[in-house]
Amino acid sequence: MQPTVKEVIAQFKAELAEIYSIHEAFQFVWLLFEHLHGWSKTDLMLHDHTKLTVSDHLFVQKALERLKNHEPIQYIIGKTEFYGLPFNVNSSVLVPRPETEELVEWILHSIDPNKPLKILDIGTGSGCIAISLAKNLPQAKVTAWDISEEALQTAARNAGHNQVELNFEQKNILTTNPSENNRFDIIVSNPPYVMNSEKEQMHNNVLDYEPHLALFVEDDDALLFYRKITEFAAESLSSGGMLFFEINRAFGEATKKLVESYGFRNTELRKDLSGNHRMIKAYKR
């Protein structure tokens, strides 16, 4: 006999209790049924006595086992939402974070939306930053780089789903030189900034499943990507152009000084909603 939705909710709360809160367990069940049937949270409660089909029960039980192994729910259902837009995600890309939405919001509030800007997103991953900007800035020409071919394929699919056109290129910023023929008005990046020594502080759902290439940097050169990108931006931004970074909260002032050492002005550190220094904006002289 198949369980009811109510029984599944109770099972998730009980079996995930050592890892997740009751609220998170309920959220997982809702996301699974939203994925299966498009249900809202209200729909989930209205169907609490509905018995699952055999196929739904099998899917939900497999999802529960994967959650017990700390796998992110976004990878299990293969999608997430970012800045009000749908994105496919998989193990080749990071799961987009709320603080990155704050970075997108800051960029949009910093520019003239009707100006035909040229924007470069370095280390695009799922494409969440680049695609969100392109969707909200129809006059802009957006280019997105990543070292990972698999990430670029995911980002390109996401661009298609969201009906925006971007220029995707496979590039390694550590070995890419500026071009005099390619100037940008905005360069934005959420590069690898978690030090290897910070791994032990991270949750298993991140450490065991998300791509380390997009997360970690060596302890002895924690600002490697910021230095390379700032150096590139100093040559590739148009006069008055803007550089935006998401940053490691432990290196806010150090990153600010680094950016300023390359001649950038009006450098601003901004905190995220949790009160951590999480992003920087600077202008090219």
Rank of each mutant, 00 (worst) to 15 (best):
L137T: 00
S148D: 06
V259Q: 07
K284S: 13
T267A: 13
I73G: 00
A25G: 02
T230A: 03
D208E: 06
W145A: 05
N266H: 14
V29I: 04
K281A: 12
K79L: 13
F12G: 03
E260H: 05
W39Y: 09
P138K: 01
A144Q: 04
P98Q: 00
N205H: 14
V89I: 12
N205M: 03
E246C: 04
T53A: 10
R227G: 06
Y193W: 04
Y283M: 10
A144S: 11
E218Q: 08
K281V: 14
K118C: 14
W30H: 11
P98V: 00
D56W: 10
Q27V: 15
M279V: 08
K118M: 05
L223P: 13
E218D: 15
P3Y: 05
A14P: 05
K62S: 14
G252E: 01
W30L: 11
V95E: 01
L237Q: 12
L215T: 05
A25V: 06
E150N: 08
I122M: 08
E149F: 14
F244C: 10
D48S: 07
G240T: 09
K6E: 15
K6D: 13
S179H: 09
R265C: 11
N182I: 15
H161N: 15
E99V: 03
E246M: 06
W106C: 03
F33T: 14
E165M: 06
G240D: 02
F59T: 09
S92R: 05
F12I: 00
I9R: 15
F225C: 07
F251E: 12
S132E: 03
L152G: 05
S91M: 11
D219C: 03
L243W: 03
P98L: 00
I111A: 00
K271L: 03
Y20S: 04
V29A: 00
P113S: 02
M242A: 07
V188G: 02
T53H: 06
E253A: 14
